[in-house]
Design a protein around this nucleic acid. Structure first.
Length: 404
DNA sequence: CCTCCACAGGAAGCGCAGGAGT
DNA sequence: ACTCCTGCGCTTCCTGTGGAGG
């Protein structure tokens, strides 16, 4: 082995040129396949540049369909105009999740001098309106577009929309308009009819990307994100195909590639190929599954744990190995489940309910089951975990035994 | 063929939490 | 604040089912 040298650490072996390009927050120079949507949003905002109120808009679409990036893109373009009258704020309602917080954000965005806390809603509201009318110092009325991303997370949305739309009646000059973004379909039903009609003055639906479009998006980003030749075309196509089959989520496609790159780097590979994307998908899959496991009722976790900890030489192993796959009998899984429950000081549920749990877990895709059929005395269900037993055991170990 | 096995899954009922009604 | 009702998670009991074994 050669003597250690800084060279081995300093030398840039990374496959990435700029990982940030793959991040969901990155806004690319040109937005592919969203020309119509961009146009519609611009058309809605354009009145602000003519000194009129912009149209209220509501953008709806599943995750990874380009809503946020589209809004940011248009708002950037608006800022490029350097208009003193047409202005915008963007905020994510995960952070600004109430009427008060959103208004506070608006005030602090445009009047950084204004102290951040301590004012009542009414005072902030007055201050904001005065500023819009241009009464204070710069004396020019403004037309403000307030972009509310993940708007469904605002707790008192009805009153927020009411306040904002009403402000236009209170204003002598200038205006306020709302650009709402959400990925929840049912969310509109929670709104009052009034709010709904104000917010949805114009509505825009973002459809999922298809495989070719995802390919195009990936190619566009890959050249900036990775070094030359670090990703094979076929790996890109595969990532696009996988994401297309799972709701056409561009964000998912991008993280697939990013994780594939990280995995390949760890193995010191020089190229990202199909198998790396495949491995990345599997890892993402497992992450999602383990998140589901974490949210499960305790007894379903115990059941999974029982299944994952059953000895390899279970009662019927020989019989089942002929089929190639290692299934367990529901009876022996139940026995193991009772043992585990006892060991953790919990009362085991009855066999009847155990069966319901099995159905639930199968529905969640965490186990696979199969009817015994020939070769087995009686009539039973054969069960096996859908993910690696050792990993399942590790995850549940953490939750069940280290928590307290 | 009948019987037994090892379950599957429906029906009824119980205790409790949380919301509506008063 | 009180009761009433409903839904949910669960147990108990029971009938049904497909194949093995005698």
């Amino acid at each position: 082995m050669p003597a250690p040298s800084f060279d081995e650490f300093v030398e840039d072996k990374s496959l990435f040129k700029n990982k940030g390009v793959l991040s969901p927050h990155f806004v690319p120079e040109t937005l592919l396949y969203r020309e119509n949507e961009l146009r519609s949003v611009m058309r809605g905002i354009a009145p602000a540049l003519r000194g009129q109120r912009a149209t209220n808009m509501f953008l709806y679409g599943k995750t990874g369909t380009g809503k946020t990036v589209c809004v940011k893109h248009v708002l950037d373009k608006l800022m490029d105009r350097k208009s003193v009258n047409a202005l915008s704020v963007y905020m994510n309602c995960r952070v600004y999740d109430s009427r008060y917080k959103t208004l506070q954000k608006c005030v602090s965005e445009f009047q950084p001098g204004f102290a951040k806390t301590g004012y009542s809603f009414a005072i902030l509201y007055e201050e904001f309106l005065d500023w819009i009318e241009g009464e204070n110092k710069d004396s020019t009325p403004k037309h403000v577009v307030i972009a509310l991303d993940e708007i469904d997370l605002v707790k008192d949305l009805d009153s927020l929309i009411y306040s904002l739309t009403r402000s236009n009646d209170d204003l002598k000059k200038g205006s306020v308009s709302i650009l709402g973004v959400s990925n929840k379909v049912d969310f509109k039903t929670r709104l009052s009819a009034r709010s709904k009609s104000s917010l949805c003055e114009t509505e825009l639906v973002f459809n999922p990307y298809n495989a070719e479009q995802l390919q195009g998006i990936l190619k566009q980003r890959v050249s900036d994100a990775f070094k030359e030749g670090a990703v094979t075309d076929s790996a890109i196509n595969l990532a696009a195909a996988i994401a297309a089959s799972e709701n056409g989520d561009a964000r998912y496609a991008l993280t697939l590639l990013m994780r594939a790159g990280e995995l390949a780097e760890k193995k010191s590979l020089k190229k990202i190929e199909d198998k790396d994307v495949e491995a990345s998908r599997k890892a993402a899959d497992e992450d999602a599954a383990f998140e589901v496991i974490g949210a499960l009722p305790v007894h379903q976790q115990l059941l999974l744990y029982a299944l994952a900890t059953l000895p390899q030489d279970a009662r019927y192993k020989k019989l089942l190995e002929e089929g190639g796959e290692k299934f367990y009998f529901s009876g022996e899984v139940y026995e193991q489940y009772r043992r585990i429950s006892k060991r953790t000081g919990k009362d085991a549920r009855t066999a009847r309910w155990f069966r319901e749990y099995l159905n639930d877990l199968e529905g969640a895709g965490l186990i696979t089951t199969q009817q015994s059929g020939k070769g087995v005395r009686g009539h039973t269900t054969l069960i096996k975990p859908a993910y690696d037993s050792r990993k399942i055991k590790r995850v549940i170990d953490k939750m069940l035994f280290s928590a307290d």
